[in-house]
Amino acid sequence: MKMISVYDSVGSILSHDVTQIIPGEFKGRLFKKGHIIKEEDIEKLLSIGKEHIYVWEPEEGQLHENDAAIRLANLVLGEGVAKSEEIKEGKVDFFADRDGVLKIDKEELLKLNTLGEIIVSTLHNNTPIRKGEKIGATRVIPLIIEEEKIIKAEELIKNKIIYVEEIKPKKCLLITTGNEVYSGRIKDAFLPVIKSKLAYYGSEVIRQVILPDSKERIIEEIQKGFAENVDMIICTGGMSVDPDDVTPTAIKECGGELVTYGSPILPGAMFLLAYYNDIPILGVPSCAMYSKRTVLDLVLPRVLADERLSLNDIAAYGHGGLCLDCKVCTFPHCSFGK
């Protein structure tokens, strides 16, 4: 790459994007890499402080920022992710190519970003994502980078760092318990909440059954769900530690594997998760009826993406598991669950 005076640049080809910044009004590309300088461009370049431009003359062992960014994108991107067709100012943007849950290998990402002169930036791991949403980007810091640095990155990173787990529609059995609901003294408020949250991800409640606080009846209905081959069972009501709240005990005794009863998430401390073979059973506490965001919003998309959650997965939510109940909710693009 060589530097020439703007006044001598007519007919030359830019080797990099030229950015214009007008404070408070505009920041973007004034000229694109490959642009052929014309006489009328000289004044524009001078107005942004460019008295010289650079013409890159390739040398062996060096990469232009655009070429390096493409190699980095190809290195880190896995299934369910697309990259921008246009490279702007040496940066490649990443977008979700399907609805799902964004997965980031944070350890591998840290390795890559500690190499120096290379950056990859993403949204948080486990963020629910819609197709087309921007989820990350990559670029190199210098305009020209030693190819050896990119080769080192390619040798270091063995697995894809960024991918989107696809959410699969599921049919759910909803079991609502509580003597007060069963007797008709109060109206069930869980069904519209659960239906709405499932529908957002293309899933549905195929059947709801309302039961008294009877351990035997709850076990019976859960086992009926197994026989019906439902994809998921959600139990609501009776999730606290009161003596007559028997739903957790019923779930534990239905023949499945208990993952956890309790979570470090607020709202949602009394959450329960179990599995019967591949069928997840969620015990959802009453906070889901009145709180805008709860443990259910964090766990549900991962369950719908067929991720088998462990106790460690739930315990990890202690860091970031406090919902601030903001007046204007921006979930999932907030600190909750991150």
Rank of each mutant, 00 (worst) to 15 (best):
5 S>M: 01
7 Y>C: 01
12 S>I: 02
20 Q>A: 13
21 I>C: 08
23 P>K: 06
24 G>A: 11
27 K>Q: 13
29 R>D: 00
29 R>Y: 00
31 F>M: 10
31 F>L: 14
33 K>P: 08
33 K>G: 12
39 E>D: 13
40 E>G: 06
40 E>K: 12
41 D>Q: 08
45 L>T: 01
48 I>L: 12
48 I>S: 09
51 E>D: 02
52 H>F: 06
57 E>H: 03
58 P>T: 12
61 G>A: 10
63 L>R: 09
67 D>Q: 13
73 A>P: 07
74 N>L: 10
80 G>R: 02
88 K>W: 00
89 E>K: 05
89 E>D: 14
92 V>G: 06
95 F>E: 03
96 A>Y: 03
109 L>G: 08
110 L>R: 09
115 L>A: 10
118 I>M: 13
119 I>K: 00
122 T>R: 00
133 E>H: 00
137 A>N: 10
140 V>P: 03
150 I>Y: 00
150 I>K: 07
159 N>H: 15
161 I>K: 03
162 I>W: 04
163 Y>K: 15
166 E>H: 10
167 I>S: 07
171 K>T: 14
171 K>Y: 09
172 C>P: 00
175 I>P: 03
176 T>G: 10
182 Y>F: 15
188 D>R: 05
190 F>K: 02
195 K>E: 14
196 S>M: 05
196 S>T: 09
197 K>G: 05
201 Y>S: 08
207 R>P: 01
213 D>N: 10
216 E>G: 04
220 E>S: 13
221 E>M: 01
222 I>T: 05
223 Q>D: 04
226 F>D: 02
227 A>D: 07
231 D>S: 11
231 D>N: 14
232 M>N: 11
233 I>N: 05
236 T>P: 02
236 T>F: 03
238 G>Y: 04
241 V>Y: 05
246 V>W: 01
249 T>M: 11
253 E>H: 08
255 G>V: 13
257 E>Y: 02
259 V>L: 04
260 T>N: 02
263 S>G: 02
264 P>M: 11
269 A>K: 12
270 M>T: 09
281 I>C: 04
282 L>W: 01
282 L>D: 02
282 L>T: 05
284 V>A: 07
286 S>T: 10
287 C>A: 12
291 S>Y: 11
292 K>A: 04
295 V>R: 01
296 L>M: 13
305 A>Y: 10
306 D>M: 08
307 E>G: 03
307 E>F: 11
313 D>F: 14
313 D>T: 15
319 H>G: 00
321 G>W: 06
326 C>T: 12
331 F>C: 07
333 H>C: 07
334 C>D: 15
337 G>Q: 06
338 K>E: 10
